[in-house]
Design a protein around this nucleic acid. Structure first.
Length: 485
RNA sequence: GGCCCGGUGGUCAAGCGGCUAAGACACCGCCCUUUCACGGCGGUAACACGGGUUCGAUUCCCGUCCGGGUCACCA
């Protein structure tokens, strides 16, 4: 079983799940699942200064809602635990020391202040560490260590030559070693840096495919040098194109909060369905062979392949997300929509015992975001004060006079109904139109206006009367008639 | 600024030497219709630029330009 694919999602608990991170997790999940592999969750909390309460729960919740169930992780265990980096803290130092023994790393006693000064005094924007401690005499190192001088451990980069690596998406990439800084491996607080912990953990957890955002492309040579220094097998790299956002001035930059809701939870709170979000972001940077668009998570896993991943960054398009969301809503049953949208129904319908399933039925074809719902159905709870001019409609051939006639006729016809349901109301009004020899709209328009008080409503006159019920309906129609008299 | 990566309609994108350069979203019309939607039909709109290579470049190479990423004791 040693050749099984293993991917990992390694978020740091910042208290916020950006859709970019979620997409990375999604691809990691899909790559693993499409090849029958294992998807691992690892929490990267090596930055003790940035700890956020409850942040880990947000990660669990997001993955669960998105359906990205991990096979191993802090909460469910696995044979490569622990899965939280802070709990692995003492695993890293021995590896760093091994590197020192092999002359691939060294102790550095430079203070933060000296480093800051170095940066300030340089006019080169990208100037880095001057490698001051790289060649300290052994005795000097021993002495400083014995004195308890604070230190970090730095990687000893080759001063010349080039490092080349293969990326499954971007192909072969080469970098001059002289460009590489002697990066810190172990911080003064004893914790490993992200880069170092990553390499150690990925190797010890047997991760075969390292999937991450493009922003790591330029630091990958450093990773490789580490793998080589240890004599470890280099994993397959899969770097993902970034997700961008469009700014007000038309420019484009990495998607961030100023572009709107970019957190998974924010989008859900706005009325986007997790399934729709997942479906949309799957297509941001990946395209299936057949160009299909609607996929369940299961279907994505069946169709995913790395060669469909794009190289160029993708702009997050709320329009398209909304379209996806609308498609998912349309695909639901009335009962399902009534259930998932119940909180939104309750925002608008507070006192009346209305049938949410019936309301869901008329909402389903015309809702793209759940949060639109309260506004759309508020008139059921309380009819707005409307202007009688609403009765005038050219297309339906209605005016103030004939609207009054239509309402009067409709009221008496509806009053005579023994059963009050969609079909009886429908037949009643259609027969009325035929009987009066007017087009359907001439009857329907005034009835709908009087029943709702709005020109635009979800559903037509029949549906609204049905949902409102006999008593409330006739009451509203009578009030409408009074308005016209 | 150095280094790395990218560049097909407004957006997501197919294309992998020869096509009238797909499709989707958005937008605009028309139809359907008891409003709005939904649905159906149609339309506007793209290979950044300049050199090569080739019988032939959107596709391969180089340069320019543009965009992005990265250069922390952050992850």
């Amino acid at each position: 079983m040693s050749d099984i694919i293993r991917t990992r999602f390694a978020p740091s608990p910042t208290g916020f799940m950006h859709v970019g991170n979620l997409r990375t997790a999604l691809y990691e999940y899909l790559i693993a699942k499409s090849m029958g592999g294992t998807f691992v969750l690892r929490i990267e909390d090596t930055d003790q200064e940035r700890k956020v309460e409850g942040a880990v729960d947000i990660i669990y919740n997001t993955l669960r809602k998105a359906g990205l169930q991990h096979d191993e992780g802090p909460d469910i265990g696995g044979e490569y635990g622990p899965y939280v980096q802070s709990e692995r803290k003492n695993m890293y130092l021995p590896y760093a020391k091994q590197l020192i023994d092999n002359d691939k790393a060294y102790y550095c006693f430079c203070t933060k202040e000296r480093l800051d000064m170095l940066r300030e005094n340089s006019d080169e924007p990208g100037a880095g560490y001057d490698r001051h401690c790289r060649d300290l005499p052994k005795e000097e190192v021993e002495r400083l260590l014995a004195e308890g001088t604070p230190y970090v451990i730095r990687q000893k980069m080759p001063l010349s030559g080039t490092t080349t690596f293969e990326d499954a998406v971007f192909g072969s990439i080469s970098v001059e070693n002289a460009e590489l800084q002697d990066q810190i491996l172990i911080k003064a607080d004893g914790y490993p840096t992200y880069n170092f912990a990553n390499v150690i953990d990925d190797h010890t957890m047997n991760i075969t495919h390292v999937v991450r955002g493009c922003e790591y492309l330029s630091s990958t040579p450093k990773y490789n040098l580490l793998y080589e220094a240890f004599g470890w097998e280099i994993p397959t790299y899969i770097h993902l194109p970034l997700i961008m956002g469009k700014n007000d001035d038309g420019t484009i930059s990495k998607l961030s909060k100023r572009h709107g809701a970019t957190g998974f939870e924010d989008l859900v709170a706005q009325g986007y369905l997790p399934e729709a979000i997942v479906n949309y972001i799957a297509l941001l940077g990946w395209c299936p062979k057949d160009n299909r668009e609607i996929f369940t998570l299961q279907e994505l896993a069946e169709n995913f392949s790395v060669d469909g991943i794009s190289k160029s960054p993708a702009v997050f398009d709320y329009n398209k997300l909304e379209w996806f969301n609308g498609e998912y809503i349309k695909a639901m049953t009335d009962e399902q929509l009534a259930e998932v949208a119940e909180p939104y129904f309750r925002q608008a319908i507070k006192t009346k015992p209305l049938d949410f399933v019936k309301i869901a039925a008329i909402l389903r074809q015309r809702t793209t975001v759940l949060s639109q719902i309260p506004e759309k159905i508020a008139f059921f709870e309380e009819q707005p004060d409307y202007d009688k001019e609403l009765f005038v409609n050219k297309k339906s051939k209605t005016n103030l006079e004939n609207s009054a006639v239509m309402l009067k006729e409709a009221i008496s016809a509806l009053q005579a109904l023994s059963e009050w349901n969609h079909d009886t109301i429908h037949d009643c009004l259609m027969e009325l139109a035929a009987h009066l020899e007017v087009k359907n709209g001439t009857v329907m328009w005034p009835v709908r206006i009087a029943a709702s008080g709005m020109t635009v409503t979800p559903g037509g006159a029949v549906e609204i009367l049905d949902i409102l019920g006999r008593e409330e309906s006739l009451d509203r129609l009578n009030k409408g008639l009074a308005k016209l008299s």
